[in-house]
């Protein structure tokens, strides 16, 4: 169990999600738990509610989880996954309105410093290319 905010990356493509997570790990190290998930339940492009729930659970932190998503369906499916995890956990999860790769790096950098979930979200969302 981690004492920092964790990061979950959700993309339509498992390769994009995994690649983004690799970049974050290389840039901020292993202090912050990062999970990635992408692809629909058949392995094609898309997102999978059950996989998103598992990814969030895999890096669950009492300090919260910041979720970065790419396109529409990733966001809607992530919102659904958060709701299905139940109200107690849902309070501790936010979806950041930020580009997936840059947002994940910024969020993880902020999380590595021990910031709370709201600060992590702010930093990710303040990012401007």
């Amino acid at each position: 169990m981690t004492d920092k905010v964790s990061i979950v990356i959700v993309s339509h493509s498992s390769e994009v999600a995994k690649g983004a997570a690799d970049m974050v790990r290389q840039m901020v190290g292993d202090d912050v738990a990062i999970a990635s998930c992408g692809g629909n339940s058949e392995g094609g492009l898309g997102t999978d509610v059950a996989a998103i729930m598992q990814a969030i659970d895999a890096v669950w932190s009492p300090k919260g989880v910041a979720v970065l998503v790419d396109l529409g369906g990733a966001e809607t499916n992530s919102e659904m996954a958060i709701e299905l995890l139940g109200p107690d956990k849902a309070k501790q999860i936010v979806i950041c309105n930020a580009p997936v790769v840059e947002g994940a790096v910024m969020a993880a950098t902020e999380a590595a410093g021990g910031s709370d979930l709201e600060a992590v979200r702010q930093t990710a969302e303040d990012f401007k290319a």
Binding site: G46, V49, N77, E79
Partner: peptide, 8 residues
């Protein structure tokens, strides 16, 4: 099972 926004 849908895998897109139409699922939720």
């Amino acid at each position: 099972n849908v895998g897109g926004a139409s699922g939720p």
